[in-house]
Design a protein around this nucleic acid. Sequence first.
DNA 1: CTTATTCCCTGATTGC
DNA 2: TGCAATCAGGGAATAA
Length: 273
Amino acid sequence: MPELPEVETIRRQLLPLLAGRTVVRAWLLPEAPRLPAHPPDAAAFVSLLEGRRLLSVERRGKYLLFPLNDGNVWVVHLRMTGALVHSAAGATEDRFVRARFHLDDGSLLLYRDVRKLGRMWVVGDPQQVVGKLGPEPLCEGLTAEALRSALTRRRAPVKALLLDQRLVAGLGNIYADEALHEAGLSPLRPGGSLSPAEVERLRQAIVRVLEGATGHGGTSFFAYVDARGQRGRHQLHVRVYRRQGQPCPRCGTAVARTRVGGRSTHYCPACQL
DNA sequence: CTTATTCCCTGATTGC
DNA sequence: TGCAATCAGGGAATAA
């Protein structure tokens, strides 16, 4: 489940490997059910990439953006089980590889996605895809004022609001739970009930959690691997996610699990108020 | 406008 | 041992 730290880890690894490279040949799973892509026709999609040079690797929220030398932008979202693994020709292939990108240095970028929930686009303006995303937490875009306006007068649980990419870009289920624990706030609190001091605590917790996880190369509870095919290490450092029944690292109370907004939610019932 | 629910997709896990 | 039901969750779509 790549969230911001996982996608940022992949971006940093891919940048030196892909910048300046030309896509000499591309292949996209052609048979149904297909990998969702835009344009939807696999041949048309491939033709927009072949022969183009990748100028850089950028990230917006959980989206990877690859600006092309013809002005278009290749956009990838890994969703739940997507992975972009770069390796020399002869890389590990299995039945879950859904797309291949051969580069002009002989290397190969494999797109692997067990559940085929990931998506790709080639668009003239990336705003078509990422235009509605909220502020970036790690680029000083997420100010206290921005977070306050996202939560104010909202009755939905703050956990559900943190998962809404239009309010804050990049948080998923793991880091929403972790940030709320770090801030000492219950995931069940209505968004609008947070005081200005609590909003600021939450903002700082979001930044700290995302920076910490990025420093650990992301979290690998499930299938996540980085661009080198390696697992992240942050699952060794989580405080509440998937730790129900185990002691809260802050107060020792057993971590609870419930459902918020249809998502499993983990929190300490004693010190998250 | 808001909030809640369903769907996509398949391997791993759980229940009987 | 086998098979079916459930779970994992990001985001779009739909319903209320």
